[in-house]
């Protein structure tokens, strides 16, 4: 019984991280209909940014989140304006996808050259502390990361719900022409969406860097996980990303405990496939497009 509760707790904590790591991908997919293969780069880039801040400058990873988000915001903006938007305007459905793939190749190469391909990790002073709650033990770092993840999702949610930019982004996703006729500059909206999504991807990367060891090549994993979370929960909605992330976290931890670690990914991918075949718009449906 204790083992089960412990597994569930671990699964939820891991799921929270999967959720925050997917919201940026979800936003771009929902608003621009672009499958953004640079997503994992921004996640892993956030982890390496935090590593540099911590090991070179001695800054606590949590404190490095705001400046890293600013950097990622600027990089995301530039990347969208200079490369991805021109590709989107080519009109070929996969042109944008390919461009993001090319960009990811360049970035992962630069990361590997800069940091080597060996495994890195960030362990601030409060690592390796376990909280005990009866028979259940909770890793402090994971709890902190989980809390920060929820806070970040709440911030993004408020931005989309209440700010002027958030409203314009949602409107453009619902009807690009309708928004343009209201006087919206759609290109600026797409750049803003990409920049915001990149900033939140980088923030999630810092949290991931605190919890798990990482290499440049891990970017693919985080792009694929974001894919699964978003497909499972539904495109474009934060609620969907939360639900998808938590479910996936639980499934992954339960599989690992009761079936064996080799089956974890297989079960996750099977769930992705099954969801696509049964309910392609995810459990909550698409936040932006009418349900089919």
């Amino acid at each position: 019984m204790t083992a089960l509760v412990q597994t569930l707790v671990n699964g939820l904590l891991y799921g929270g991280i999967l959720s925050i790591a997917a919201v940026g991908f979800s936003l771009i997919f929902g608003v621009m209909s672009v499958i953004n293969l640079t997503h994992g780069i921004f996640v892993i880039g956030g982890a390496y940014g935090a590593l540099v801040a911590w090991s070179v400058l001695g800054i606590d990873p949590l404190l490095s989140i705001p400046p890293l988000m600013l950097v990622a915001f600027a990089l995301g903006w530039a990347c969208q304006r200079l490369v991805i938007q021109p590709a989107v305007e080519r009109g070929n459905p996969v042109a944008a996808l390919l461009v993001t793939f090319g960009f990811a190749l360049i970035a992962v190469n630069l990361l590997t050259v800069t940091f080597s391909s060996s495994v890195r990790s960030i362990s601030p002073s409060y690592s390796f502390i376990n909280l005990r709650l009866g028979d259940i033990s909770i890793d402090l770092v994971r709890l902190v990361a989980f809390g920060c993840g929820l806070a970040l999702i709440a911030i993004l949610g408020s931005f989309l719900r209440f700010s002027r930019w958030g409203r314009v982004i949602r409107a453009t996703a619902l009807s690009e022409l309708g928004a343009r006729l209201c006087g919206v500059d759609a290109r600026a909206v797409y750049a803003m969406t990409f920049a915001v999504a990149s900033a939140f991807a980088a923030a999630s990367g810092v949290l991931i860097g605190m919890m798990l060891p990482f290499t440049p090549a891990d970017e693919v994993t985080w792009t694929v996980y974001a894919f699964i979370v978003v497909t499972l929960g539904g495109v474009g909605s934060l609620g969907g990303a939360m639900l998808g992330g938590l479910l996936l976290g639980l499934v992954s931890t339960l599989t690992q405990t009761y079936l064996g670690a080799v089956y974890t990914n297989m079960v996750m991918f099977l769930i992705l496939l099954f969801t696509l075949l049964v309910r392609p718009n995810g459990i909550l449906g698409s936040a932006f497009k009418a349900s089919r």
Binding site: L174, S175, L177, G178, L181, A287, F288
Partner: peptide, 13 residues
């Protein structure tokens, strides 16, 4: 200002 064909209101807002 153009009120477009098919209205194009923002359905989920």
């Amino acid at each position: 200002t153009l009120v477009p064909e098919g209205r194009l209101i923002f359905a989920r807002m």
